[in-house]
Structures are given as C-alpha cells and as structure tokens.
Design a protein around this nucleic acid. Structure first.
Length: 322
DNA sequence: GACACGTGGCA
DNA sequence: TTGCCAAGTGT
C-alpha cells in the first residue's frame, strides 16, 4: 500500500543529483545565511550548546537577546554550574519550556563533573548530557566541532519531504526512513555547511506556510513543485493552550520568576488574600488570578512544578530552586 | 508512539 | 480573532 507522506527510498537519489543539491544549497547558504552570533568564528562550543537549548521549539528572534545575556553572565559551563538552578530559570525569562533552563544548568554541571568543564566533542558524550537528545547532540557535534554528523530537525525534515519525497510536509513524527534519507544525502565533505544550509533553507525559504519557492536555489529539482505543490495529506494536530494545566503552570512560573523571595503557597493557589504583600509580583499574580482555573487545577499545576523541580518548597512558601 | 511541556508573532 | 508554528526532549 502506498504511503504518500513516507520518505522515498534512499536509492532514489543519484550521486550526481546529490552533488548538485550539495553545491546549490551550500552556495546559497554562503550567500544568504543570517549573521547569527552563535555562527560567528569567535563563538565557542559552549555558546553553540546554549543556543541549541534555547532554540528547541523557540524562534531565533526571541532567543537572540536572551542568548546574549546568558553568554555575558555565564561565559563558560563552570560559571553557570556555580550559580543556582533558580537563577538559570529566572534568566530564562519568557523563552518558554523552563525545564530547558533546568536541564541546561544540569548539563553545565555534568560538563564540569565529567568533562573538566569543556563541552565534549563526540556525539555519544553529548547525548548523555541532560536535555540533549538526538538532534542537539548531532547539531553541536556538527556546528561546534565540524564532525560529519547527520542533523535532522524540523526544517531539514520539511526540506527533504518536499525536495525529495514530494510531500507538502514531513510525517507527524520522525521516521526511520527519514533518517536513512538524511544519511544518504550527506556529502563526503563540508557536512557542517550542508547541515546548516539545509536548516537555513527550511527556516527562510522552504517554510511551513507560504514557502518562497521563487527564491529557492533548488526549486527546479523539487519533487513537490514538480507534483504541482499538492496539499498536506494530514491535518497537523494543534497545541491546546487556553484552559490547560500548561497555561496555569506558565502563569505560576511568571509569579515565581518575579518574586524576590518565596511565595506563600496560598497565594499561588488563590486561597490567600493579597493585602500587604510586596508588590513585585502583583502583575503576574493578577494574570494568574484571571485564569479560569479551579482549586483542583491550581493544585495539579503546582504539584507538577514541584515534581519537575521548577519550584521547591521553601519554608512556608514556594520558590525557584536554590 | 502518544503526550506533556511555554510563549508570542503572524496570517 | 483563532489557530498555526518555532534549531525537541523525556516519559
């Protein structure tokens, strides 16, 4: 049975065709890449690792200012490891998914403990760091150390789906066929520029919505364009937000980030009046109170934060982890 | 493999 | 305005 959105067999890419794609995309990258600070020659592996953590599910424009602050404050892994996890979470600000801040802090500690304070330069060691999965390990190995790792992120998956497979979008989850295709497409040299170029092409040109095919360096080779740019075969599953525990957790985290010290549990749960509280977190607190969350959901959200280590019990209250 | 997990910009 | 989407990871 045909599976239209599955990746094509790797054997369908001829060496000459692959060579053409390598040349075109790397040339395009050299001419069109954004000047991002973590791509500059002076950026060390730690700066690249920090950028990869922040870029997980978060757009570049929002990462830029926070990355600059982090590198200024914690220029080496040991600097971050010497500070508290709570400070990392606070400095994470509103980037989202604050557990990434916790894991980056833990990764810094692991780098100090297990690697003498230097970011490890092999895929296996990187993969053992907290918060580092298949993608991030390959990205750091490739971008920081120039190793010939196969990087597969959401941009690259979409580029491959269109260019080679002819589908409008990649499958909902990463498949083994996609990994084989990505490996088959890897050039014999210049892998760093190939990985970065394919990713950048997906981010700037071959975008999820309204791709700019007129500016694409490989439009004439694109299987999806040749097929008449068919619609996706499935409807992407949306992310619920309003009324979810995530929304409540986010509002509670905003209160904890802004608070100078610990926050009484009853304040977070809405069972205690504000009266004479220090005013630092009144804004975030008002936002939390405005949510249509019942006692049960408030309790569940707080328990989740405590379980995840994003918050800890401190005296009679709740605070960011020490 | 399906889910949970933040946040804000853009069409 | 509502919904989609962004350099994923851990369970």
């Amino acid at each position: 049975m045909p599976r239209p959105d599955a990746a094509a067999p790797a054997s369908s890419i001829e060496p000459a065709e692959a060579g053409l794609l390598h040349r075109r995309i790397r040339d395009w990258f050299a001419a069109s890449a954004r000047d991002l600070p973590w791509r500059r020659p002076g950026c060390d592996p730690w700066g690249i690792l920090v950028s990869e953590f922040m870029l997980q599910q978060t757009p570049v424009v929002r990462v830029l200012p926070v990355w600059e602050q982090w590198m200024q404050r914690w220029p080496r892994p040991a600097d971050l490891a010497a500070d508290s996890a709570g400070e990392a979470v606070r400095a994470w600000g509103r980037l989202g998914y604050p557990r990434r801040a916790l894991r980056l802090h833990a990764a810094a500690a692991a780098i100090v403990d297990r690697h003498g304070g230097r970011v490890p330069d092999d895929h296996a060691s990187l993969l053992e760091l907290p918060g580092v999965g298949t993608y991030t390990a390959a990205a750091v190995a490739s971008f920081a150390f120039g190793l010939p790792e196969t990087v597969v992120d959401t941009n690259i998956r979409r580029v491959h789906a269109r260019l080679v497979t002819g589908a409008a979008l990649p499958a909902p989850t990463l498949t083994a066929a996609e990994m084989r295709l990505a490996q088959k497409l890897m050039p014999g040299s210049g892998t760093k520029e190939w990985n970065a170029g394919a990713m950048e092409l997906g981010a700037l040109i071959c975008t999820a919505r309204s791709p700019r095919c007129d500016a694409c360096p490989v439009m004439d080779r694109c299987a999806w364009v040749k097929a008449g740019r068919p619609e996706p075969h499935y409807v992407p599953k949306g992310q619920a937000w309003a009324g979810t525990d995530r929304q409540v957790r986010g509002a509670m985290m905003a209160v904890l980030r802004e608070a100078e010290s610990s926050v009484p549990r009853g304040i977070l749960l809405g069972s205690m009046e504000l009266a004479v509280l220090p005013s630092a977190y009144q804004g975030p607190l008002a936002a939390l109170r405005a949510l249509p969350a019942g006692d049960e959901q408030l309790g569940r959200a707080l328990d989740g934060l405590l379980t995840d280590g994003l918050a800890v019990t401190a005296g009679d209250g709740i605070s960011l982890p020490g």
